[in-house]
Simulated scan of single mutants.
Amino acid sequence: MSIDQHGDARLEGMSLRGLPKVSLHDHLDGGVRPDTIVELADAAGVDLPVDDGDDLADWFAEKGDSGSLVEYLKTFDLTIGVMQTRENLTRVAREFVEDLAADGVIYGEVRWAPEQHLAGGLSLDDVVDAVQEGIEEGEDAAEAAGRDIRVGQLISGMRQTERVRELAELAVSWRGRGVVGFDIAGPEDGYLPALHRDAFDYLAREFFPTTVHAGEAAGLDSIRSALLDGRALRLGHGVRLASDLNVIERSGEEVMVQFGDLARWVRDREITLELSPSSNLQTGAIEAWGTAIEDHPFDLLYQLGFSVTVNVDNRTMSRTSLTRELSLLVDAFGYDLGDLEAFQLNAAAGAFLPVEEREELIELIAAGFGA
């Protein structure tokens, strides 16, 4: 399958871009339009390696394809640099939602770390309010263009800092006003969720949902801590959970697998895996299995009944979209529309929404795929 000049592909006669999608793992500072960065850079005092939007998109793609999460994260200096004023935050959030809607997303959760956007003198509440304003403007613009989309914020605390509890309290204070959940992000290896047990205890007492970056740059201990210390309802990536599966025998399409206790727990409790195929390849998260999308343990996890979802992680750094990610999986594993629908239904079931709204989302997905 190939992507056309409009970023679309077709499967069984249906446009992949036109399919209703749910995006659970999508970073705001990882989805800034390169043209917008170029336009805002001078006033923001950000030095760019190139001064053209297309060339900057190429630069992000090249630097993002490093095989290292640490190197991958360095590219965010440019995007975060232009996101330090209210006006810029609102614009970036608005364009982010418009891009989601153009990709066929009907429900999305955008994650970002407010503490990284205070250099211009704004407070934590100021930046959350600015992003929320942009989200609502983007939703209105999408509606005017004939597309329906709803987007909620996931507040991320940076796991290498001392402000995670403060950010958890910020997230809870914005419940019902646009914020739907909490996350910790940043360098995973060496910073177990257990370091922030106090913040997660607080969130649990407030019955506030959490997803935790785990199993991307670190292994099973990180995932275990996300579940036990972070009370994670979803795993941000979680791809290295596959190392708790021992493939005993392969015979054609049949695979005999021995489950570790951790993998069985995640599978049996339907804990959502926020997998991001292109990003997982770029950051080296799947290096234990290979160096191509075909080597990604996505299909193994799917066939074994895990609640797998498809995500972009960072649209700009990975130069991707949900449409493209689905197309890559179709090419790699021969999926049909039924498989793609299953991924969206998993994402809808894992969304941080009340059950009635998740059921409505599931109905919209079923109707869109059945059209």
Rank of each mutant, 00 (worst) to 15 (best):
K21P: 10
R324V: 12
Y202R: 10
R319M: 06
H25R: 07
W59I: 13
P34R: 01
D35E: 15
H296P: 14
W112H: 08
G350R: 01
P20V: 12
E274A: 11
N311Q: 01
R147M: 14
N346L: 06
N88V: 06
Y202N: 13
L73C: 07
D51W: 09
T75M: 10
E294S: 14
A214F: 11
E39R: 15
V105L: 05
F96K: 03
G134A: 05
E166F: 05
Q282G: 02
Q116F: 11
D55H: 08
A371E: 12
N346P: 01
D52R: 02
G18T: 02
D55G: 01
A348D: 04
I365H: 08
T309A: 06
E360T: 11
E254T: 14
D4F: 03
E137V: 02
I362M: 13
P20W: 08
A288W: 06
T291K: 13
L11G: 15
V151D: 10
M1G: 06
S307F: 08
R159W: 07
S15N: 05
L89C: 12
A101T: 02
L228I: 08
A288E: 13
Q282S: 08
R269K: 14
S68F: 12
Q344K: 08
A9T: 04
T161W: 09
D331H: 09
A101R: 01
A44M: 11
I286A: 03
P354R: 00
V92I: 14
